[in-house]
Structures are given as structure tokens and as C-alpha cells.
Design a binder for these strands. Structure first.
Lengths: 218, 218
DNA sequence: GTATCTCAGGTGACAATGTCATCTGAACCC
DNA sequence: GGGTTCAGATGACATTGTCACCTGAGATAC
């Protein structure tokens, strides 16, 4: 079989390999472990090659975060579209999905809620970098924002089906913040069952119950 | 006035200066901006000096986190001991204090909920490092844990005064996770008022109201 | 009071890493 | 077929964490 030959296909393959390698290294040892040299090596290229596809390490990680948001957004969409589940179960599933994502890939999860960097790149402004910025590879931080907004919309729809359109946004924010707080505290070791005598699942149930009791009637 | 002369006093001053410099740099540009060389420079010493007081960069940041936990723990204690406030206001104040800490010093706040590193140090095991580990400067990651547990105890007491001892732990975890989620989402830009049509303060109020309605009677 | 010790701090060195400028060869277009 | 484009390779550089070793002044023993 004639394998990839066209340059565009080859580049697309490399790009994908770079993203996969970055995500894998991220899962293994966090952002510090994501080395452009190692990413390149795992993708079968050398250290400088990633700069042909991303503006730098930060942009590469941004792209990983974007794909993570898209995946979680897809999960939300699937949950919302499932006709077999009642609204309360959809909401519970949504919250559990978020917490589960944190458990499965902690570093990738934390990347989702990373503080956005100040501007595109904080290093020097070489001629090559300017060229890349203008017409070069992707370096669009807004992509992650768009993907996260898609997730938020799906999540919001799940909430609205439970508490109604009127209070959906307020309670949606509360529920999302609650789930994220649970996930993040669990990851950082601050939700020790020994201290709080409860579990993430119980907290999710309580959260949904509290919102359901007063949210629906409000 | 005879300034510091004894070696112990001088060392204590340096240690404090190192901590202050690290915290300042952290506030300015995040963990990446905390350079041992710059920390040393601001403290009036050179790049190698910090290793006489901390086991490395991670330990230095751990110490900063410990002091932050202690400070927030003190805030909780002050709130709890204030006889002029009703229990609901103490709780609201506690949650708002956490979120306010996040607003005031975002990077220091995020340091509090940072995933603990795997082990003491992941670099080489030189003879000097072993010596330091055995009898050298502080490198106790448990210090931050102890400080955070003190905070948790104070927070738990505030919650207990509101919902009663029986459900204090469960609702305490829920409230703490909720407040942290609100703070962290605000810092990462995921609590945009434009999207959710609500604010952190409103979310805190709702959180307290929900817990108060069904928590007290449960 | 002197000799010795202790240890905070200084210094040189090294490896890892992000980044850039330049080069190269093959796919691409005419 | 010749020129062009661009993914990728390579050399280079600055920054940074870390370590081994050195130094000198305060602390201690006698």
C-alpha cells in the first residue's frame, strides 16, 4: 500500500504524533515532563520540528487542552442526547464525567483550568517568530476558549433540563464550580476521606439534591 | 542600634528574605518566574545560598505555600472567634475569604492546591543533597499538609456552627469544594459573568442558602 | 586568649531545556 | 525540467536548577 506520500498528509501525521506524544508525556509527569525534545523524539522528529506545527511549548499544550475540552464536550453532548436518562441522571453523569476525567488524567485535567498566559509568547521576538505568528502554524489561544465554551453550552443544556431555563445559568455555574472544586481538591489531596468522612460521589449526590430541591421550584 | 550580629539571627533574616522574595516573584509571574538566582539577588545573596535554607526550589515553594495556609488558617480562626457575627455570616465570610485570597494573589492561591510532587526531590542524589536531607535545612513537605489541616479544622468549626456537628464534615467538604471551585474557575477565566450571568458572591450566597435550608434540618 | 570548629554564603561547573537562525532536500507548481 | 515552498535537521545560545568545592567570620572548647 502506498503509505503517505503527499507533504500535507505527512505533516498532518507528524502534527498528530506530536500532540499524542505531548499528551502522553503530560499524563506521565506533568507539564515539566513535556520536553519538546522528547516530544519530537516520540514523534520521530527532532527538537526543532515542533516549531513548524506550534508556536512553542505553550501553544502545544494549548492544543492538547483544546482537544481535551472537545472530548469532554463530546461526552456532555452524548449525555444530553441520551433519551434513556432522566434529567437528574444526566446531570449526575455530567458532574461525574468531569470528576472522572480528573481522576483518569490528572495533569490533562489541570491543564483545562490553567491560568491563561499573558499574551502569545513572552520570549524574544525574533524574525522567525513574527513570521510564524503572521502566517505560520497555529498559535491561537482562542481555540481552547472556543472548545471550552462548546463544553459549557452542552453542560448548560444538561442543567437547564433539570432546573429549567430560568435558573439554568446561575445553578449551572454553581454545579460546575462544585464539580470542579471536588475534582481539584481530590487531585491535590485536600479531599481526604479520612478528614471529611465523605466521598466525591456522595458530594455530587448532595449537590444535585440541594439544587433539585430548591432550584426547580424557584 | 546594634544590628544583627549572631549567625543564627543573620541566617533567620536571610531565610525570611528568601521567603518574601519568592512570594513576591510568585505573585508577579507565577512559579516559572521564581528563579533561585533572582530570589537570591532580592534577598541579597547569591544563587547557591538558598540551598542552605531549603532543599531546592520545590521546597522553597512548599514553604511559601505553608505560610499561605497558615495565614488563611489565621483568618478562619479570627472569623470563628468573632462573637459579633452570626453563624451564617461567619460561613459566608469564610467562603469569601478563600475566594478573596485567590483574587488577591492568584499564583499563591493556586500553589495551595497544587498536586504534591512525587517524593522529596527527583533530581540526582549527590552527597551534599543527602547530607541536607539528613540534618540540613527544612525540606518537610508535611509542613504544608499540617498547615492546611489546621485551616481545615478552623473551617470545619465554622461550618459546624452553622449546620451542626452531625453533618459538619459532609457539608464542610461540599462548601469548601464549592468555594475553591468558584475561586479556581474565576482565576482560570471560566466563570465569565457574560456566560453565566452571575457572580462569585451570588454563588456563595446561593451555596450557603441551599446548605442552610436542608442542612440544618437534616 | 588562642586554636579549632561550624556553617552561611560564594564560586565554578554541568546538564537540561526553550528558542532561534540557518541550512537542506524533497515534494510541489508551472 | 527548473524554480519554489516548506517540513524537518542542525548548530548555537541564554536561562535555570543543581551540585561539589572553597572561604571566611562567628561560635566553641580549652
Amino acid at each position: 500500500m502506498g503509505a503517505m506520500v503527499t507533504r500535507a498528509e505527512s505533516a498532518a501525521l507528524t502534527r498528530r504524533a506530536l500532540l499524542d506524544a505531548a499528551a502522553e508525556l503530560l499524563d506521565l509527569g506533568g507539564p515539566e515532563a513535556v520536553t519538546l525534545r522528547e516530544v519530537g523524539a516520540r514523534a520521530g522528529v527532532t527538537r526543532g520540528a515542533p516549531y513548524r506545527h506550534f508556536m512553542g511549548k505553550d501553544s502545544l499544550l494549548d492544543a492538547v487542552a483544546t482537544e481535551s475540552w472537545e472530548r469532554i464536550g463530546d461526552q456532555m453532548h452524548a449525555l444530553r442526547a441520551d433519551p434513556a436518562l432522566p434529567a437528574s441522571e444526566k446531570l449526575r453523569g455530567a458532574l461525574r464525567a468531569l470528576i472522572g476525567a480528573g481522576r483518569d488524567q490528572p495533569y490533562r485535567y489541570q491543564l483545562l483550568f490553567k491560568r491563561p498566559g499573558h499574551g502569545p509568547g513572552e520570549r524574544g521576538e525574533g524574525i522567525d517568530r513574527v513570521m510564524r505568528q503572521l502566517c505560520g502554524p497555529e498559535g491561537d489561544p482562542a481555540a481552547a476558549v472556543r472548545a471550552s465554551m462548546r463544553f459549557q453550552d452542552e453542560f448548560l443544556a444538561v442543567v437547564a433540563a433539570f432546573v429549567g431555563e430560568r435558573n439554568a445559568r446561575h445553578y449551572g455555574a454553581l454545579l460546575l464550580a462544585g464539580a470542579h472544586g471536588i475534582a481539584d481538591m481530590e487531585l491535590s489531596g485536600h479531599l481526604s476521606e479520612d478528614t471529611w468522612r465523605t466521598t466525591a460521589d456522595e458530594l455530587v449526590d448532595t449537590l444535585v439534591r440541594l439544587v433539585g430541591d430548591t432550584g426547580e421550584t424557584a
